[in-house]
Design a protein around this nucleic acid. Structure first.
Lengths: 111, 111
DNA sequence: GTGACATATGCCGATAACGGAATATAATTG
DNA sequence: CAATTATATTCCGTTATCGGCATATGTCAC
């Protein structure tokens, strides 16, 4: 059994660094494919293939206009990932607190 | 060129659903491997292999004690993922706002 | 040391992903 | 219709991954 398909969910889709770059690039404005190619310095077929994956898992939306295709990030699933990471928020606050406390103790000991 | 290694970064490591299960399970308390096996109903070699990946990218820490190995989630890299998703926070608030506004307009039109 | 327990590693076969280059599809222009 | 532009798809070879089972390593208890 190989790894789960990149199209199986948002977590798998964003494992690829280039796809994260694309999502970041498309976060605040829709853009045609050619702008992604120029902006991120990637080959056009490569961009199209990555967009297909992102589209399939719902991480981007397309609007077709003539021969152009305008893509933009759809943050619905990114929000889901955000929520998953938030499960650990309390935990890392504790870890930071421990580090801080230890640092303060060390500093106090040095005086 | 195949997909990037699962050990290449936290994003690749958490693409695997079982590994996310393990991280969630180990979020608030360290646990020996056997408890993960029981708690998540997975095979022991499978758990050990997933833990190796998570350890390699720094998503878990181990404390060895006798023949037991206690693992716990290290949230440092999860925080990095959290920060990446936060880049989109403003965007999804806009999207929610649009949906809300549209819903209100629809409701107003119906009256 | 022997046996029991806890965890880690090795071997296997099947499969999907990646980049690159070529080519296909679709829309526009003249 | 032919040429051009914008995007999508296909083919190819290489390679890491996964689960399952067997087995190795390490630790304790008698």
């Amino acid at each position: 059994m190989p790894r789960a398909a990149t199209t199986s969910d948002a977590f798998n889709a964003i494992a690829e660094p280039r796809r994260r770059d694309i999502l970041t690039f498309l976060a605040y404005a829709e853009r045609p494919v050619s702008e992604i190619v120029d902006g991120l310095q990637m080959g056009q077929p490569s961009v199209s293939k990555h967009l297909r994956v992102l589209l399939e898992v719902g991480l981007v939306d397309v609007r077709r206009e003539g021969r152009q295709a305008f893509y933009r990030t759809n943050t619905t699933h990114i929000k889901a990932i955000h929520e998953w990471t938030r499960l650990f928020e309390r935990h890392w606050q504790n870890q930071l607190q421990r580090i801080k406390t230890r640092a303060e103790r060390t500093a106090a000991a040095k005086q």
